[in-house]
């Protein structure tokens, strides 16, 4: 659109550009710098070329972490998106109960990540945690520190508890924008509950769902704090997702070169998948027009 041009507007954008340069571009460049060099300490760096990238790409340890990560994200999306829609559909539309619901739903989103981790870490402990004690009392052999399945289940349930509200709230906003006349018309047409969902609610939620799926994909693919606090990546490597592995590599082993190469690949993977998601979903949208 060629609205009235005003070049002064660029001055207003300048502070943001400077800020972004300091907070994102320069750190990223340092990472790029590390990823192509090797060091033996004493601030002496040697050119390493693409060596670290090769190492990362062929590393079985990384492959395993990537596999776990993909599985985790797939499960998270498969649970949270339908559950979020389901919750949104059953929330009251207006009045006191709607406000109450909104507040309750927003609560988990307001809790800092490490606190969420700590809460569940304690909640699931078999010695003092409510969940752990109850499950044990019911006869389940539950222990997230020793059983990999229990650890996964705990981390997934925690994430569902923490983030399903986000999907639900976004969908709720989408549903609120549907004029009452649509529901009335559907009643008159004797549309089934499924038809109302399929032909009225889902199409109107499409836009917000795209955002919800993207956000949940990116967040879950980069998950670090909560599983780190609860399981520390264990038992063994069972819940060592990509970020946890990356931190282990960078801070634990101080392998700065490979960690930097890992970061860059990690970043590109997320960018690529997000882009694919976005294109596929907007194309779907366009086809229907």
């Amino acid at each position: 659109m060629d609205k009235s041009q005003n070049n002064r507007a660029w001055f207003l954008v300048l502070p943001v550009l400077v800020l972004v340069a300091f907070s994102a571009v320069i750190p990223l460049m340092t990472v790029v710098n590390y990823s192509v060099q090797d060091t033996f300490g004493n601030n002496a760096f040697f050119w390493a070329g693409l060596e670290w990238f090769e190492e990362i790409i062929t590393s079985e340890r990384i492959h395993a972490a990537l596999g776990r990560q993909v599985l985790f994200t797939a499960i998270i999306l498969a649970i949270q998106v339908p559950l979020g829609i389901f919750v949104a559909l059953h929330m009251p539309k207006k009045g006191f109960w709607a406000s109450l619901c909104l507040i309750l739903m927003a609560m988990p989103l307001l809790i800092p990540f490490n606190v969420v981790g700590t809460i569940w870490q304690i909640f699931g402990r078999v010695d003092i945690g409510l969940l752990g004690r109850v499950l044990t009392a019911l006869g389940f052999d539950y222990n997230y520190t020793s059983d990999w399945l229990d650890a996964w289940a705990t981390v997934i349930v925690m994430d569902v508890w923490h983030w399903t509200s986000l999907v639900a709230l976004l969908c709720y906003a989408g549903l609120q924008s549907i004029p009452e006349a649509y529901y009335q018309a559907a009643k008159i047409d004797q549309a089934s509950r499924w038809a109302v969902f399929r032909h009225i609610e889902l199409p109107k939620m499409r836009g917000v769902l795209l955002i919800a799926v993207l956000l949940r994909f990116m967040d879950s693919f980069m998950i670090y704090t909560e599983p780190f606090v609860v399981t520390g990546g264990g038992p063994g490597n069972a819940t060592t997702f990509l970020s946890i592995d990356l931190v282990k590599m960078a801070i634990g082993q101080f392998d700065l070169g490979p960690a930097a190469a890992f970061s860059i690949i990690y970043f590109l993977v997320i960018l690529l998948i997000s882009w694919v998601f976005y294109t596929v979903m907007t194309n779907l949208d366009r086809e229907t027009k």
Partner: peptide, 24 residues
Amino acid sequence: QVFQFPVVYDTMTVRENLAFPLKN
């Protein structure tokens, strides 16, 4: 009932829209 603003099922074709009340 016909409302003030058009109420159509965007996901359906015109034919499906018209057939909808009968099919149901």
